[in-house]
Design a protein around this nucleic acid. Structure first.
Lengths: 339, 339
DNA sequence: TGTTAGCACTCGCTTGCATTGAGTGCTAAC
DNA sequence: GTTAGCACTCAATGCAAGCGAGTGCTAACA
């Protein structure tokens, strides 16, 4: 059987309607709204075909039809209606830009901003940083046996962590050490830096030995550069969707959202462009009834972090794709202008 | 009418039972569990008295009794049963300490740790820092027209923010400026520092002028020191309590949790010790059915930050008070050992 | 005087049943 | 190929009956 133009039109109307209403859509209402000028009976015949082909599902025999994941897939791939108007989009762009001005606020507020603007749960994956080049390294005493390690990279990104130092070195000594180390490591990638630090620790290099906590330092760099971080915003937006009126489903969702590792895997597994994953395609059981829209953003030339929103499969895809595309562009631009 | 010993005993049994079961407790079950060896009829008489006195509430005439906020208040004040055993408590202490080792992790993970261990929603209020004394100030170039400002205080706490600097100063120049400023401001409180910076900006002091962004700097210091920050952890723990099986209640709760200002007010309004606020006492309408346990923690000698948990009024107070007391002690100790 | 057994009564909850109505599939006519 | 008509299905709604946990009251008892 073939999916002809009229079937497509009807399918699109069903998805559009269902996205708004969240109730199975019947043939009668459809005959009025889809604009084909055919009667409900005709629609019924077409719907029967679409059901047989797996695009529609009937909750029960006397209910309307609900789009299947397969229908959403087709819809996203080739049936997207008009997206957001330009004026609406630029409003959102302004709202977004007032909240995300640099890498720092991206990490702390980006997820919140995206979730506020989309009303979905938002994820921000920080860029994998092991390929960034080191520009300089600084040590700042913070009292006791701890110092703040600041690594400035290529794209202005800072990795700062507090590390232990063996003895009470004063600010001047730490500054000198920082300068010294900077000279040695300038231009290395963070990955190389980490390896070099482990090398220093092993060979007891005279200069490096000054820092008692050199191994600690290397370990910190490793931890910071290897493990991506993912920030979640607006997880409880999910409570506004009737699909999650049942608290146990909301709980399952929240638990999945808490599992940073699988979220990272989810965001890392994207292809280079913006992508939509529907239902099972997410690969996470708790998101079987959800869709995930992922978009990359870039820092400097190397790739790449990712942003994502998660919501019920019933999602206004056209709008959300516009939004995510815009966020991605704005972020990439904002973060590379910094350099 | 008098609240004699037996009434107290019965009230305590009712609260204990209700905390576990979340169902109105009847006279029959009570006569078996409260250990007084009296019949249900006697209990009924006592319960009638307690109801009249406002300690108990009947959802409807043929249901058991439910403790009123007044009952919880009495319970917390003078009826607390045995708290946690020492071995159980020290287990929790270990779990907590492996997750919160310093100020930094306190801010980023403290709320998560507390909520995980208590299964309630946890709040961490960062200490008001305007009274901390400045030990040193450092500037680290991070590319472009931005520098990282690190202020090291009295208690090893770091406030770091990125500020704009007018021209491209290299690391050496920034270091010198940092040293210079450190000499001038050492020993000031953060509040004094802020005022001094505004002073510099106004008088065009020769040394300070080097920093084009001095006003920016002052503003940042003000922002960082004046506005308390509150971190929330485990907000969705609330979904595990049947009191919030209705999603609209969960939503209301989440919205209240998102209102940082009122949370800060809530945590700031505590007295010096550990405190329990029940229902209306919280002063936040959305928490009318909740209790909040607040505990202060100290950094150095000045006070103080606060931690809190929020959950349904039906809360195992004895355990939670033990826990919060322990968290508070551990934090205070961990953070002052740092010095 | 305090305690207890007994009993009628209340009322939320569950179960079962009939009704409703939106929506379907099928058939026959256009 | 399209449409009108019709019988059928089934979730949802409303209603009544029965159940049972729990109460208040009264009378008897220690």
């Amino acid at each position: 059987m073939d999916v002809d133009a009229r079937k497509l039109r009807i399918l699109q109307a069903i998805v559009d309607d269902y996205i708004l209403s969240n109730t199975p859509v019947g043939s009668r209402t459809l005959s009025k709204t889809c604009g084909l000028g055919v009667s409900s009976a005709t629609i019924r015949n077409e719907m029967a075909d679409l059901t047989e082909m797996g695009y529609l599902v009937q909750p029960h025999v006397s209910a309307g039809r609900v789009p299947s994941p397969k229908a959403y897939r087709l819809y996203v791939t080739s049936l997207l209606p008009q997206g957001m108007g330009e004026e609406e989009l630029s409003g959102a762009r302004r709202a977004f830009n007032t909240r995300v001005r640099d890498m720092e606020t991206l990490i702390s507020q980006g997820a919140a901003a995206i979730s506020d603007l989309t009303h979905y749960t938002a994820l921000v994956l920080t860029p994998r940083q092991s390929d960034l080049k080191v520009r300089s390294l600084h040590l700042v005493p913070v009292g006791g046996d701890r110092a703040l390690l600041v690594i400035v990279t290529d794209s202005g990104v800072i990795r700062d962590t507090s590390i232990r130092i063996s003895s009470r070195l004063d600010a001047g000594a730490l500054y000198t050490i920082g300068q010294m180390l900077t000279q040695r490591i300038q231009g290395m990638t963070l990955r190389q830096l980490r390896e070099a630090l482990y090398g220093y620790a092993a060979t007891q290099d005279a200069d490096a030995r000054v820092l008692g906590g050199i191994a600690d330092l290397a370990a910190q760099v490793e931890k910071q550069t290897e493990s991506d971080r993912v920030m979640v915003g607006g997880a409880h937006n999910i409570l506004y969707y009737p699909e999650y009126a049942d608290v146990s489903r909301a709980r399952a969702f929240m638990n999945a959202i808490d599992d940073a590792d699988s979220l990272i895997a989810l965001l890392r597994s994207q292809d280079s462009g913006i992508s939509v994953r529907i239902g099972q395609e997410t690969g996470i059981p708790a998101f079987a009834d959800c869709s995930v829209i992922t978009a990359p953003y870039r820092i400097g030339r190397g790739h790449t972090g990712a942003i994502a929103i998660i919501g019920p499969t019933r999602m206004p895809y056209a709008r959300m794709l516009d939004m995510m595309r815009m966020f991605s562009q704005e972020l990439t631009q904002t973060l590379s202008v910094k350099e």
